[in-house]
Design a protein around this nucleic acid. Structure first.
Lengths: 218, 218
DNA sequence: AATCTAATTCTTGTATACAAGATCGTTGAC
DNA sequence: GTCAACGATCTTGTATACAAGAATTAGATT
């Protein structure tokens, strides 16, 4: 399907920006990157337009394209927005979720718990992601689901570190259980609140995020 | 600032898609549009990438770029998402808004009421937009604000018709008053609910939207 | 030494050229 | 008459060429 070099380059560049391979303000050098990817400038420039439209880079006419990494303030705003959007997904899901779908979430939580028992952070991470994505879907609103996925993906690199701390997985797990309970009750406000609280950056998590930012900035 | 023809073309094409000048599935013909804009294919293809990244068009490799107009289902989903996001803005604004900012909203509502008294739909529309945008800003989260503005803008062409019906402006006005009251009280849940209800498509509005869709589809 | 200026070099933005896949129409077989 | 195969034509994707604005450097002037 994806025969266009430009598309693949856009994906790779996006990945590179997410991975922090470019710092804030770095210029995306057309000729250097063209040489690196072994193509001409044309497909690169098309790829750039995608990054720009996604807010990953900024273009200054006649000067070039510069990557835009979120600073601490924007990052907090993004996390707050994510928390609120997850809350919204929970609100809608509480009204629409089926019994079978609840069972799926329960099973996902079982696998989460197993990952904790095995102290397998990567596995927990994967199951946790599945849990959240599944709730997005249960909002019954695929437009909202896509928006949630988009933001979730954008924040992924910054969320990574958060679980690797004493007690975080267990607490996160307990919150998952509360979320499922609220969904099972069909209580929209309770589900929204549970998800908001689960995702929000507060207390200890704030400091973890900030310290991870400093190491990433180097 | 905007010296790039590609940027201007992207803006114009976006506007054209919003205005419904292209139907769902219409192919964006590179050579025809290039002739129309009086440029070569290169800047056009860069502009396309922006539309694609914004979800306004879809690219099928080696086949072309096709505009993607939301159907009734997606449109309902978008309006529901808008309602929820406005609710979120209201929730946060209720916790953060200042006295002065509330005064600004009160004044905006006065102008709205004047527009109603003059039966000036366009003026009401403009003031209404200002009211909503101002609430986005009062969320104190500029990332969320931008997301809200983006979706608001996307839905603009479909919202246009809704006000042109008997009693809609008056009811909308009453809801504005209730929203400001909830914000003044500093009650997040009440503000959220008021905004959700104000924006949501329900009852009569649903039929208006659907009928406007049919006329637009021709 | 510092600064202003002019010439050179680099980089971006757009046009054009070319290669390869997709579309369409025609012909021929059944 | 239908369908399949083939060729002509069109369209896309990428490379290259060229023009113009930006950055840089060297030189002249104070």
């Amino acid at each position: 399907m994806e025969i266009r070099r430009a598309d693949m380059i856009a994906d790779e560049l996006e990945e590179a920006v997410f991975a922090g391979e470019f710092g804030d303000g770095d210029r995306l050098d057309e000729v250097k990157l063209a040489a690196q990817f072994g193509v001409s400038r044309t497909p690169l420039r098309e790829a750039f337009q995608r990054l720009i439209a996604s807010g990953l880079a900024e273009q200054i006419p006649r000067r070039g394209v510069f990557v835009r990494q979120p600073g601490p303030v924007e990052l907090m705003e993004m996390f707050e927005t994510m928390a609120e959007i997850e809350g919204v997904c929970g609100r809608l899901a509480a009204m629409r979720i089926s019994e079978q779908a609840i069972d799926v979430l329960v099973e996902a939580n079982v696998r989460c718990q197993q990952a904790i028992d095995n102290s397998d952070v990567d596995d927990y991470y994967r199951e946790n992601e599945y849990f959240h994505h599944y709730i997005y879907k249960q909002s019954g609103n695929s437009f909202l689901e896509q928006e949630a996925l988009r933001l979730h993906r954008r924040l992924k690199p910054f969320r990574r570190h958060q679980l690797r701390f004493r007690g975080r997985m267990a607490q996160s797990m307990a919150e998952h259980v509360a979320i499922v309970a609220a969904l099972k009750e069909g209580d929209p406000d309770k589900a929204a609140q549970a998800l908001r609280g689960h995702v929000a950056i507060q207390g200890e998590k704030f400091h973890l995020l900030m310290s991870s930012l400093k190491t990433a900035a180097q």
